[in-house]
Design a protein around this nucleic acid. Structure first.
Length: 683
DNA sequence: TTGATGATGAGTCTCATG
DNA sequence: CATGAGACTCATCATCAA
């Protein structure tokens, strides 16, 4: 039997839950009668989890000890599958998950096609469990942590910050240590102590890893202090809240923090809620503590974060400055800035000048992840959760060039002292395409193009528009204007003659996206594929602006791991920034894209080495370690995983992160984790 | 076999209005 | 604040001609 004890909240609460869970598990897991939060144990997901529970248990802890549960963990399939088993385990998937899926797929897992399904199946299992965990944090959290998360964590597939307690407080700093049974640890803020016991096995304990704040490389340390300033000292009477304040202070919080939290949430708030509030407050403060105080409206309907922004920081966001994406199973909002300028763009003053990264995100390597901003609800929450809870930076490339490109970026780069590529590219259609001005009708008021996509408008549409317009000498009637404008916006058509519109040429798209002209030409690539590759690419100026902070840090050049490289947007950006590329490992599925990058590499007389691979799944632990040993680790991992299943244009398979291609995001995470672990070990 | 073409909406956010 | 119209979106697939 396994027992879990959680502490991110008062000990009595925590033990109470643990005891209850223990009883529930002993009783076979069906406790639907006595719980206030109802839970459908008959749903498909839960059956899946139950099945998972009943499967064999085997834990391998980092020190090599093996914990074996009710059954044997090696794949039930024959020797033909052991290779598959080892393969996926070496990729970082939990042994149990691999075992389970091999059982489901039987001997067929050796075929290449099924291997892909196999991986998808594992990722889907993972996601479902993970999502469900979040949905029912108070109960299933414990169960799936018990039956699934621990395996994932011990196998390196889950990270500490994936374990979340009620209110979304991440359980940080966790590491696995071997220890003998001992009394409950002292409760710390942001502290989760998780104990596994088994009559047959040694005890495993997850507890705070304080070393992460001790031994970091200086350049990776956060410059911000997370302590509240003394200016915020309050002189309020403690009254009936004395005990709660005392509790919080004993837990390591400052008295003024506790007082503010109690004042805002009321004396009847639980310690759990108060801790959550203080945590949010600290993050919000770190995000921006310098804005001047403004008037303070009523707080009755504001959430905790807004409380802190308004009351403690004296900060007031403009009403139209953000929108919220609220996932169906999570009430944590993500903010899409309006204007969508992230931490600032060259032409707009930055709202946020500094930020505090979650501790897990700090440390080599730097990473830079990109995907479409307008993904289905909840996707960015998930992406952020998997990338150390770093908040996405949403930027529209229309602030860098003449075409819109709304993208989210998650990275652990500094955001101070960024600089743009020069010369600044034209930022209006007329500046970018001066020849079109002659034919541009006054009633077409566009100054920016919409997002450059993978498909272009047809000649037939152009012809239809021409015919619709040629019936009129002067200005066409309003309905014709509306039709033409709608099509022009939809297909990014520009005026190239009298009554004549046309889609952009591939080299024009290249220029807009910041690539050298003819970057995608040659190598036998078709015109259609050029549009497709370009449509899937970075906007170089935007990415270069974010990466520009690396220039002073790496005057001698960088080692790059470029995943889902496409036509090499990141490489081009770094090159245009003047950052030498020492060793670039580029992973790209499309052969024509690899040829394009290889061709660019040679044409620009790069001095370094370019290693290109065609499949991220080739990058297992061994491969990565060998590569890293060859040239001493990666300085930057960059890439945007496939957006096919996230993009709004996809009418067929907009399946979210679980989609066939978009699920490769989890390979990005897996590889980032592997590199991070290796670099941490080698430090 | 390959490249080009045209038909195929839903989901979500923005904004004006009352 | 509720509502509805308008706007936008790193796409996919069957089909056909070369």
């Amino acid at each position: 039997m396994t027992i879990v004890s959680l502490c991110g909240q008062p000990e009595d609460l925590c033990l109470c839950k643990a005891e209850r869970l223990k009883m529930e598990l002993l009783q076979g897991g069906d406790e639907s009668g006595g719980e206030s939060d109802s839970f459908d144990w008959n749903s498909e997901d839960e059956r899946e989890i139950e099945n998972f529970q009943s499967s064999s248990l085997r834990l391998t802890v980092p020190n090599g000890a093996v914990l074996t549960g009710s059954g044997e963990a090696s794949p039930s399939a024959g020797p033909s599958n052991s290779k598959v088993f080892d393969h996926f385990v070496s990729m970082g998937f939990p042994r149990e998950m691999v075992s389970k899926v091999i059982e489901e797929y039987g001997n067929g897992t050796t075929s290449p096609n099924l291997s892909k399904d196999f991986v998808r199946k594992m990722k889907t299992n993972y996601l479902k469990n993970f999502s469900r965990t979040r949905r029912n944090a108070s109960k299933l959290f414990l169960l799936s942590l018990l039956w699934y998360g621990i395996w994932g964590y011990l196998s390196g597939f889950l990270r500490p910050h994936h374990f979340l307690v009620k209110g979304g407080t991440p359980l940080k700093y966790a590491k696995v240590i071997e220890s003998s049974p001992q009394p409950q640890q002292r409760i710390e803020p942001n502290h989760c102590s998780l104990v596994l016991e088994s009559p047959h096995q040694p005890q495993v304990k997850i507890e705070p890893d304080l070393s992460s704040s001790e031994g970091g490389v200086s350049s990776w340390e956060n410059s911000d202090s997370d302590a509240l300033s003394d200016e915020e000292e309050m002189t309020k009477s403690l009254r009936g809240s004395d005990n709660i304040v005392l509790t919080l202070v004993k837990m390591g919080y400052k008295q003024d923090e506790a007082l503010i939290a109690i004042e805002r949430l009321g004396c009847n708030s639980s310690v759990d809620e108060l801790i959550d509030f203080i945590g949010v407050a600290q993050m919000a403060k770190a995000e921006d503590a310098l804005l001047p105080p403004e008037e303070k409206p009523g707080i009755s309907k504001l959430n905790k974060r807004r409380y802190y922004e308004l009351e403690v920081l004296g900060r007031k966001r403009p009403k139209s400055c953000e929108k919220r994406i609220i996932s169906e199973d999570d009430d944590e909002p993500l903010h899409l800035p309006n204007p969508m300028i992230g931490f600032g763009v060259p032409t707009e003053p930055a709202i946020i000048k500094h930020r505090r990264l979650p501790d897990d995100a700090v440390g080599p390597p730097y990473f830079y992840y990109e995907n479409v901003a307008l993904a289905p609800k909840g996707v960015w929450q998930t992406i952020s959760r998997f990338l150390y809870e770093v908040e996405p930076e949403f930027v529209d490339s229309k602030f860098f060039c003449a075409a819109a490109r709304k993208r989210g970026y998650i990275h652990n780069l500094p955001i101070e002292n960024r600089f743009p590529l020069l010369p600044l590219p034209p930022r209006t259609i007329h500046e970018a395409f001066p020849l079109t001005r002659k034919w541009w009708p006054s009633w077409d008021t566009r100054t920016k193009l919409n997002c450059l996509q993978t498909a272009i408008g047809s000649a037939k549409l152009t012809e239809r528009i021409r015919k619709a317009l040629e019936n009129y000498d002067g200005e066409p009637p309003e309905d014709v204007q509306r039709f033409v404008l709608e099509q022009c916006r939809k297909w990014n058509l520009v005026w190239v003659g009298r009554n004549k519109v046309a889609p952009l040429e591939p080299d024009e798209v290249e220029t807009l996206l910041g690539f050298p002209r003819n970057h995608t030409r040659g190598g036998g690539i078709s015109r259609t594929d050029r549009y497709k590759s370009l449509g899937n690419s970075f906007q170089v100026d935007t990415v270069a602006y974010h990466l520009s902070v690396l220039k002073d840090m790496y005057p001698n050049g960088m080692n790059i791991l470029s995943l889902f490289s496409g036509i090499g947007g990141a490489e081009v950006a770094l090159h245009r920034l003047g950052i030498p590329l020492k060793n670039v490992v580029s992973v790209e599925k499309s052969e024509v894209n690899r040829n394009i990058v290889r061709s660019w590499w040679e044409q620009t007389n790069q001095k370094g080495n370019l290693i290109d691979l065609d499949d991220v799944q080739q990058l297992n632990g061994d491969r990565i370690e060998k590569l890293m040993n060859t040239f001493g680790g990666f300085d930057l991992i960059v890439g945007g995983s496939p957006c096919n299943n996230l993009a709004g244009s996809n009418r067929v398979s907009r399946d979210g992160l679980e989609g066939k291609e978009s699920s490769l995001f989890f390979d990005y995470c897996r590889i980032l984790d592997l590199v991070k672990n290796i670099m941490t070990t080698n430090q």
